[in-house]
Every structure is written in structure tokens, then in C-alpha cells.
Nucleic acid binder design. Structure first.
Length: 869
DNA sequence: GCAAGGTC
């Protein structure tokens, strides 16, 4: 029997594993599962008092991400300033997964939607993404519920079902606000500084000079430490080390004043002590001390241990943890919480480990003697602390995974172990009026340090002293020391600083650290210390002198604070975004205005393009400069792509302004053959080596066989053979008329001023245009008579043939009397007649088609070829 | 080619 749609309930979780847990719990394990974009679990049960058919599925994190619409994706055509007011669009984060379609399909026929997203702001935001995909908001008859749960346990799941609430739109909007602010601020600054500095310096070894409200303050921490180290001035200090010999052991006494920075004063005290020569035991105290077991393990603490003790970087550690999680060895590894939920099954988890060869006997004793309840940590309401789920051995896991798993187990067992207890004995001495002491430690209960031995309290034995006892001083050393600078920030230190300052989240902290490494702002050195590079240092110095806010952690707190107002419903989402963006826009404008100050720092650190000499033009793939190798065969080499691009031989090559090829983004070059009659032509290094249009090869091979154009080895298509319909350097744009000598086209030599001329793109026919003109350019018009391209001439004021000193003139070089009289043929015989006769009677586009005739015999239709672009 | 945040 078909169930009424109102009795169908769709439930959506944030990830597949949670959907599985919820379905298993609610169905008591009696469900059917089918595949989809994500698995769908189905079962029957009761919902709000009626019989219902349940479908439980999930998304995989955010369904959508924000970005700029297509026109704004073009770096060259967009002023980053405009990005602040640009519209933004949402697109599926992972289009291939088709999550939106999946939700829409599964929602069909359902009258109730229950949202089981994680209970944080991001989860609340995903709720509304899910609602959007399901179309539930469009129909008032369909009900939407939010399930609030803090752990995936039966108790919490049933509790959430019994207390369904509404999704919180304010919290979701706060996330929308953050997304828009982060996108606009990050992208605007990143594009501006990348474009500005990469155009100026050849040896910047970063593909993109990024800016972000999380990554930049993260870099700031590393550079701040670098500054501390660099400006550190060591200071000498002195201390007194008196020794006694007691029961045959030599013992050094610690001075109560520790150390002093004035040697004369220390020498004075040394005299007092030495003159006395006898010490008296003034006090003996004994105290029971406790070193507490750890609270539950959260992500940042796992990452800190992984980096400092296991030598695994945060990014790698998270990948390893992720794998351990998906394989079922540990619980979900992304959590802020260090408190276990009250319902946590400690006994069960200990039971899992009781058979493990590594900790089995310890765990069995713990179970037999009774384990301790874990210390109360913080409950962030997200996921439980990271704990083992299965027992494993080193062989099954492999080296790194094993070490991380081992730590998770040790930590977990540690949280249930007794505290470590030890006796601390302090003996105080007096010599010449100065106080000294000795401290001994004796462990009475190892507790958790038995399973986490690196945290053990060291044993320090002291002899038995008696109060009032007098002992002879054997010697008094004057110790000289020096203060030392701090070390570079370790990854572990950095993670602590980020956490303390609210930079990033458990999941994104490793990403930010990885970013500043990948962008070559810092390098990880021995001991996982983060050492800033010259680029990283120069950037932070630059922000500091223009607008220090840009690299301070407050920039993140500011954004967080503003969007919290939205989350609490105290401020309107649109207004907050506008307000924050306006402030950042002002900061951006000021930064742009002051960029010269940062540039001064770059000048001192990097070599300008002009000086380096070797870098010629930018690669269209990686946008970094390619090296020009002038030795035979001449070529460009892209260091990042590891690609070579051959160039024409026997001529000079220069950057052609800073123009780029519209097909592949490579910067154009201009090649000039030697001698007064040597022609010049633009070329794109990429197209030249890999002609993009079908059939072009027949043209340039025709050009080569004539022996007149020296294209060189591996050479191909200069712009004068390119049929691109709109590029201003192509044959279409620069071609004027058919060649009178061959099947080629006469094209304008773009850099032949003031001896303006046309040359044939196949043979060596040369035609001189009006000499001394300021400018000659082709237009988009064709001559109605002969179909040649109309050219525009800007004559020199002094030599203009025009009446009244006018300089501007346009016309056809064949049919216009004035222009034709100023045109002169070189290497050709009967320019006028041949041109006139050949040109006449041709249809539009004849210049182009004309080339197709003759030796090659093959027609090339650029419109056909353009399909692929 | 850009951010930061989810998750795989």
C-alpha cells in the first residue's frame, strides 16, 4: 500500500557516517540501504505519533561554495576594487557528486524534513543549503525540523527526536556573511599584490602572493618570532653555585636570587658566602604534589603532539587521522571538545584495548582496579574527544598511522588512569645571610605517566638532612651565563597561537599552515620549526609599514565579532556585510595608494625584471616568468612547468609590450629579423610551438619551403598566420590584401615605424607604405571595390600630403589614389595591376580565403576550428 | 591563479 506523502520523512546528516548511525539507532538496525550520491537508509517507524516511512541520507559537508560570476574571474579585465561591490554566486562545492540533485530526488514525496547537521554555525548554514536543494521552503504544507544533538549516541539521538526545533536562520546568515567577506577581502588583496609584484620582479618564487584574514596573521606569528630572534641582544648574567659534600655525594645548592646581571654584586655575594664557609639547614619541608591526568584529546592537541613528538606536520597528521577514522580505528578526528559526553562507554572502549599486545595488561589492570572518571575538559558541543574504536597493531597500520593511533590510545588510557602523585622535598640553606635550596622528587603513584612515559616526573634523590645541621661549603663557583634568543616558532607553538587567537578551526588550522608553506612564505626546518622566507618577511614588513591591522590576528576577531552579531540576531546580515566590506574597501584603497612603501622593501630583497635579464615573458600556464636561452637553438624555458618553447632563429626577440595571447594567456614576443629590410612579427611562444588551429601546419610548412621566413627548429605559427577572428595581432586583424607574388597575405609590420611596410606572410614580398607616418593601423573595414582592408594613416604634421595640414586619413592602398601613389613595391614586379586584378570581384573575407588557394590547396575555416575554444 | 569553511 502506498503511504501518503505526508507520512514520509527525509532526514539529512552532515556526512554519511552520521546518517548511518542515526538510521541504525532509530531503526534498531532494521533498515535497508541503497546507493546514491550518498547512501540512503530506509525503514518504517513512528514520527510525532504517526506511522512513518523514514529515509536517512547525508550531504558531504557544505553543498555550495561562494564565488564571483564569470566576468569577474578574468584578472586582467577586473579591477580588484570592484570585487568589493561585485555580486557573488553559489555553486556546488563538488559538482560531480550531484548532492543537490540527490536531495531534490529524495525529497520528492516527503512531507517532513529533519535536519541532522552538526550543531555549529556551519551546520546551521548547511541546513539551509539542504532546504534549498530539497525545495521544502517552497511549500508551506511540508514541515522542516532541526535535530539538536551533541553526540551520536542513542541517548542523544532519541533526545533530539523528542525535542525537534527549528533551524536557526541567524546563525546560517552569519556564515553567509563570513563567506562573502572572506571571499571579497581575500581575493581583492591577493589579486592586487600578486599582479603588482609579479609584474615587477623576476625572482619571486611564489605562483601567487596570497592574502587572507587567516593565513596572513598566521604568517604574522612566524615573522614576529623571526623579528624577536633578529633583534635579540644577549645579556650576560652571573650566579653563585655553592657545593657541599654530604654522605660522600657532592651536591650543588640553588641560589634563591637565581641570577643577577651585575657581576660586581655577584662577586660581593660570593665573598660573603666564601667568608662564611659554613651552611646551616634552616628548613625542611615535604609536600604531596599531583600531576593531573589529561582531559580528552581534541584535534589541536593531537596536531601539536603529532608535530612536536612524532614529527608529522598538521596536514599529514590530519590525513593519517582521517584514514584511521574511515577505517574505523579511531573516532571522528575533528573536534574541539576535551570533555567526554556523560553517556560515553569507557568500559567498552577499554575492553576493546584489553586484548591489545601493547597496552593489554595495563588496561586489564585498570579494568580490574577500577578506572578513574576522566577530568572535565571543555565541551564545545561538537564531537566527543578523539578515542580509539578498534584494537590494532603496528603491522596492520603502517608506521605513521601506527604512531598516531598509538598516541590516541595512550592518551585515552591516560585520561582514565590515576593522577601521578609525588613527594616534593625542599631543603633550605643559609650561607652568609644568603638563602639557597635543594629540591628532591620521589614518585609515589606513577598513574597515567606509566602509559605516557614521556610525561613522567623525574626521580631526584636527596640525602636526609636535619634542621639546624651545619655543613661545610666545599667550593663556590661563579657561574657565567648569557641570555639566549627564543627559537623559531614550532608548528606546535603556532597551532597554540592560532587557537588562542581564534584563527581558523580544528579543520582549517592545518590548511592555513600548509598554505603559507606552499606559497613559499615560510619553510619547515629541522624540528618542525617554521622559518619565514625573504618573501614572507618582506610581506609582513610591508603590511606593518602600510597598515599593521592587515597582518594582526585582530582582523579575524573583528570579522568574527561582527558576524556573531548576525548569529545572535542583533544585526541585519546585509548591513553587517556592507559595513565590514566598506571598512575593508577603505583599507584596500589605502593599501593600493601606499603600495610604493612595500615596493621599496621588495626592491631591496628581489631583483627587478630589467636587471635579471634572463627572464623574458610570462608563461600562460603558471604565469611565472620564463627564462630566455639565447644559445642555439634559442628558446624559452619555464622553470615551474619544465617546458621548453622554441623561438625563431637569427633575429632579435623582445617582449611585445605586455600583451597576451587570448588563446593561452602566454605573453607575446616580437621577433625582428636583422637588416634594414628585416621584417618583424609578433608571436605567442605557445602557439608558435603548438599551432592551435587545424590545418595551420600546412600553411607554415608552405612558408618554410619557400625558404624566406626563417622560423627555426620546431617552429610553427607566428601571429601573422593565426586565423583568430578577434585578436588584434592575428592575420585576420593585421592582413591587408592578398600577396601579388604568391598565395600569401600581406600583413602590416606592427613595429616598422617610421618606415611603415607590409610584408607577405609566406614569401619575401615587401611593400612600403607612406614613410614617416606617426601611426599606421588596420581597421575593421574592407574596400567595397577590391575587398582589401582599409588602413588608417596618421601622417607626420610636417610632411603630410593632406590639405590644410590635416594628418588623419584612411583608405584602400590599391583603390585610393592618394594612398596608392604613396605605396611602393619591393621585390615585386607589377604591384598595381596584379593587385587590382586579383582583388577585384572577390567576396568578403577574400583576404583570408585567398590564402587557402595555391600550393597548400587546403581551406581553413577559423569558425570551424573555433568550436574548441 | 584568488579566501575560509565544511568533508572524502
Amino acid at each position: 500500500m502506498e503511504m501518503a506523502s505526508t507520512n514520509k520523512v527525509l532526514m539529512v546528516a552532515e556526512k554519511p557516517s552520521i546518517a548511518l548511525s542515526i538510521a541504525s539507532t532509530l531503526s534498531h538496525g532494521r533498515m535497508s540501504t541503497r546507493k546514491g550520491s550518498t547512501d540512503v537508509h530506509e525503514f518504517d517507524g513512528s514520527f510525532l505519533g504517526f506511522q512513518a516511512h523514514y529515509k536517512v541520507t547525508s550531504v558531504i559537508g557544505h553543498v555550495f561554495s561562494v564565488d564571483f560570476p564569470a566576468p569577474y574571474q578574468n584578472w586582467a579585465a577586473t579591477d580588484p576594487l570592484d570585487l568589493f561591490q561585485a555580486p557573488i554566486c553559489k555553486a556546488e562545492t563538488n559538482p560531480k557528486a550531484h548532492i543537490c540533485r540527490h536531495l531534490s530526488q529524495e525529497a520528492r514525496g516527503c512531507g517532513h524534513l529533519v535536519l541532522w547537521l552538526d550543531c555549529d554555525r556551519e551546520g546551521e548554514n548547511i541546513c539551509f543549503e539542504v532546504i534549498e536543494c530539497t525545495g521544502f521552503h517552497l511549500n508551506k504544507g511540508r514541515r522542516i525540523y532541526r535535530a539538536r544533538f551533541s553526540s551520536v549516541t542513542e541517548k542523544d539521538i532519541l533526545g533530539a527526536m523528542a525535542n525537534l526545533v527549528e533551524p536557526n536562520r541567524h546563525e546560517a546568515l552569519a556564515v553567509d556573511a563570513r563567506q562573502e567577506i572572506d571571499l571579497k577581502v581575500g581575493v581583492a588583496f591577493t589579486r592586487f599584490q600578486t599582479s603588482y609584484f609579479q609584474g615587477k620582479y623576476g625572482n619571486l618564487d611564489s605562483r601567487v602572493i596570497s592574502y587572507g584574514p587567516c593565513q596572513t596573521p598566521t604568517l604574522g606569528f612566524c615573522v614576529q618570532r623571526y623579528f624577536q630572534i633578529n633583534t635579540f641582544k644577549p645579556e650576560k648574567f652571573w650566579s653563585l653555585h655553592p657545593y657541599i659534600i654530604y654522605n660522600g655525594y657532592e651536591l650543588q645548592l640553588e641560589w634563591e636570587r637565581k641570577k643577577l646581571f651585575d657581576i660586581d654584586v655577584v662577586i660581593m655575594f660570593q665573598k660573603l658566602v666564601m667568608e662564611d664557609g659554613i651552611t646551616e639547614v634552616t628548613e625542611i619541608s615535604e609536600k604531596q604534589e599531583t600531576k593531573g591526568r589529561p582531559p580528552g584529546l581534541n584535534t589541536v592537541n593531537l596536531l601539536k603532539v603529532a608535530s612536536s613528538a612524532l614529527g608529522l606536520g598538521p596536514q599529514v597528521a590530519m590525513q593519517v587521522a582521517e584514514r584511521l577514522y574511515t577505517q574505523g580505528f579511531i573516532s571522528y578526528p575533528r573536534t574541539e571538545s576535551t570533555s567526554y559526553p556523560s553517556s560515553f562507554d569507557f568500559k567498552g572502549t577499554l575492553g576493546v584495548l584489553a586484548k591489545n599486545p601493547t597496552w593489554g595488561s595495563y588496561v586489564q589492570r585498570l579494568l580490574a582496579d577500577g578506572y578513574n572518571k576522566p577530568r572535565v575538559g571543555t565541551d564545545a558541543g561538537d564531537h566527543p574527544p578523539i578515542t580509539p574504536m578498534l584494537s590494532a597493531t603496528e603491522n596492520e597500520l603502517g608506521k605513521d598511522a601506527w604512531r598516531l593511533y598509538e598516541y590516541v590510545c595512550q592518551h585515552f588510557i591516560g585520561t582514565l588512569s590515576p593522577d601521578c602523585k609525588y613527594l616534593r622535598t625542599k631543603v633550605e640553606f643559609s650561607i652568609g645571610g644568603e638563602s639557597f635550596q635543594c629540591v628532591g622528587q620521589h614518585v609515589t603513584v606513577k598513574g597515567f605517566t606509566a602509559i605516557m612515559p614521556w610525561l613522567a616526573i623525574p626521580e631526584k634523590n636527596l640525602p636526609q638532612f636535619t634542621k639546624g645541621e651545619k655543613i661545610e661549603i666545599s667550593k663556590v663557583d661563579l657561574f657565567e651565563g648569557s641570555t639566549t634568543p627564543p627559537d623559531y616558532l614550532s608548528e606546535s607553538d603556532l597551532i597554540s597561537l592560532m587557537e588562542k587567537n581564534g584563527i581558523g578551526t580544528d579543520a582549517s588550522i592545518p590548511v592555513h599552515i600548509n598554505n603559507i608553506c606552499e606559497r613559499n612564505f615560510v619553510q619547515v626546518q629541522a624540528g618542525r620549526k617554521l622559518v619565514p622566507t625573504p618573501l614572507g618577511i618582506t610581506l609582513i614588513r610591508g603590511y606593518q609599514c602600510i597598515d599593521p591591522d592587515l597582518c594582526l590576528p585582530d582582523i579575524r576577531s573583528f570579522i568574527e565579532h561582527q558576524i556573531t552579531l548576525v548569529a545572535k540576531g542583533q544585526a541585519d546580515h546585509i548591513h553587517v556585510v556592507q559595513h565590514v566590506l566598506l571598512q575593508f574597501r577603505q583599507k584596500y584603497c589605502y593599501f593600493v595608494k601606499q603600495i610604493e612603501n612595500m615596493n621599496t622593501l621588495f626592491e631591496a630583497q628581489f631583483s627587478a625584471l630589467a636587471d635579471s635579464g634572463r627572464n623574458l615573458s610570462k608563461c600562460g600556464k603558471c604565469l611565472r616568468y620564463m627564462k630566455y636561452i639565447s644559445s642555439q637553438p634559442p628558446r624559452l624555458y619555464c622553470n615551474t612547468c619544465e617546458e621548453e618553447y622554441y623561438l625563431p632563429q637569427k633575429g632579435s626577440i623582445k617582449l611585445y609590450k605586455e600583451l597576451t595571447c587570448p588563446l593561452d594567456n602566454f605573453e607575446l614576443l616580437i621577433f625582428s629579423m636583422p637588416g634594414p629590410e628585416g621584417k618583424s612579427f609578433p608571436l605567442c611562444p605557445y602557439c608558435y610551438n603548438s599551432p592551435p588551429f587545424e590545418g595551420i601546419d600546412t600553411l607554415y610548412s608552405a612558408a618554410k619551403t619557400t625558404g624566406s621566413s626563417k622560423l627555426g627548429k620546431g617552429a610553427g605559427m607566428p601571429c601573422f598566420l593565426c586565423p583568430h577572428p578577434t585578436c588584434q595581432h592575428s592575420m585576420i586583424a593585421q592582413g591587408v590584401c592578398a600577396c601579388p607574388e604568391c598565395s600569401g597575405t600581406l600583413v602590416l609590420d606592427p613595429v616598422s615605424a617610421p618606415k611603415w611596410r607590409l610584408y607577405c606572410n609566406i614569401c619575401n614580398c615587401l611593400v612600403f607604405l607612406p614613410q614617416g607616418a606617426h601611426r599606421i593601423s588596420t581597421t575593421q573595414e574592407s574596400c567595397p571595390e577590391c575587398d582589401s582592408k582599409i588602413i588608417e594613416v596618421d601622417f607626420n604634421k610636417k610632411t603630410t600630403p593632406l590639405e590644410d595640414g590635416a594628418t588623419l586619413y584612411s583608405g584602400c592602398i590599391l583603390c585610393d589614389e592618394l594612398l596608392h601613389s604613396l605605396v611602393e613595391m619591393k621585390h615585386g614586379k607589377s604591384f598595381f595591376k596584379r593587385m587590382a586584378s586579383r582583388g577585384r570581384g572577390r567576396g568578403r573575407g577574400g583576404v583570408y580565403r585567398g590564402r587557402g588557394r595555391g600550393s597548400t590547396g587546403k581551406k581553413v575555416d577559423p569558425k570551424m576550428s573555433f568550436r574548441d575554444f
